[in-house]
Simulated scan of single mutants.
Amino acid sequence: MVKIGIIGATGYVGAELLRLLLSHPKVEVAALSSVSFVGQEISNVYKNFLNKTDLICESADEVVKKCDVIFTALPHGLSEDIAKKAIDNKKICIDMGADFRLSSEDEYEEWYGKKFTQPALHSKSVYGLPELNKEKIKQCSLIANPGCFPTTIELGLMPLLKNSLIKLDNIICDSKSGTTGAGRGLTINTHFPEENETFAPYKVGAHRHTPEIEETLSTMANDKVNVTFTPHLLPINRGILSTIYCSPKNKVNLEEIHKLYLDFYKDEPFVNILPLGEIASIKNVRLTNDCFISLHLNHRQDQIIVVSTIDNMIKGAAGQAIQNMNIILGFNETDGLNLIAPAF
């Protein structure tokens, strides 16, 4: 059994990783780390693990020492040095944070306020969107797991961009997320009385996922892509839905676009293209590693509308990380991820 370690195990993403990995048929979770809960059993922090695991939170160095694959579920700026130790010791590192998502140090500093601490390491990392970079992921030991908002948008647009069907300077991404996307730490925006029975955008025009979205979409298009990205906070725990508006270069036929998407994703186990006339919904991806996509035209038939939805904690974080691990280790891509959404 491959030994797995999670650094940052008591955050929401770390806990979701542990929940999924405990049921994975080919790995053993061997060590956990948490700065806030060193020496405590994980079941003292999350009671859902009571009698499921007796793992105790320890130091990050111990996790690196004991494990073959290390997941770093940490805020930005904290993963690079840990990744360096892992790679130096011939381990696999899958970073759930933002430290390796951007190729430009200048952009990273502009959006995250920090410089790279291990600049040489960035040339060794691969952006871990499996549907885009599967062959590169197979050969890599350092993965930058994508952000949750970017995952919905990138999967929603990839067939159009790869086939050069839309204009690149007028893409609008209107996204909504459950509150788990903000992490476990309490903020005023996620405090129950502030979030319940309301709905509003946040970080309008200045969200940190913007450069990641633009860089990845530009890679897909082989040209510079600019987006207007506006995230919103929904009064639900989990799920993301992105409604994406884009202008076609020529007159479009929705049936042809639909067939293009079906063909493009036919070998991807987690991307589901809905029949025309149906609309993607958070309900149908909740607690799964699936992405559901529906395709639409506006009433003038001069704008393509793509609706893309995922569970932000699974396909947007922990599940996609496990998918990347499966690819690297040569497992079936769906191992540990054969999850079905609740019917209600």
Rank of each mutant, 00 (worst) to 15 (best):
M1H: 05
I6K: 04
G8F: 06
V13R: 02
L17H: 00
L22W: 07
H24L: 02
A30T: 11
S43I: 03
K47S: 15
N48L: 13
T53Q: 09
C57P: 03
E58M: 12
S59M: 11
E62V: 10
K65V: 01
F71H: 10
H76P: 09
L78S: 12
E80V: 02
A83N: 10
I87V: 12
N89T: 07
K91Q: 02
I92W: 01
A98M: 13
S103L: 14
S104E: 10
E105C: 14
E109M: 15
F116W: 15
A120W: 11
E131V: 07
L132V: 11
K134F: 07
I137P: 00
A144D: 01
N145R: 08
P146Q: 05
P146K: 02
T152Q: 04
I171A: 02
C173Y: 07
K176F: 09
A182E: 02
G183H: 09
H191I: 10
F192E: 10
P193C: 08
E195R: 15
E197F: 15
K203S: 11
V204C: 04
G205K: 05
A206I: 09
T219C: 04
A221S: 11
N222A: 10
K224R: 14
T230K: 09
H232W: 14
L233E: 00
I236W: 09
G239T: 04
T243M: 12
T243K: 15
K249C: 06
K251A: 10
E255D: 12
L260W: 06
Y261N: 02
Y265N: 03
D267P: 00
N272S: 07
I273V: 10
L276A: 05
G277M: 06
I279P: 00
I279D: 05
A280T: 04
I282N: 04
T288G: 06
C291P: 00
F292Y: 15
L295Q: 06
L295E: 03
L297D: 01
N298G: 05
H299G: 01
D302F: 11
Q303T: 08
I304S: 02
I305R: 09
I314D: 01
I322V: 12
M325W: 06
G330D: 08
N332Q: 15
A343R: 15
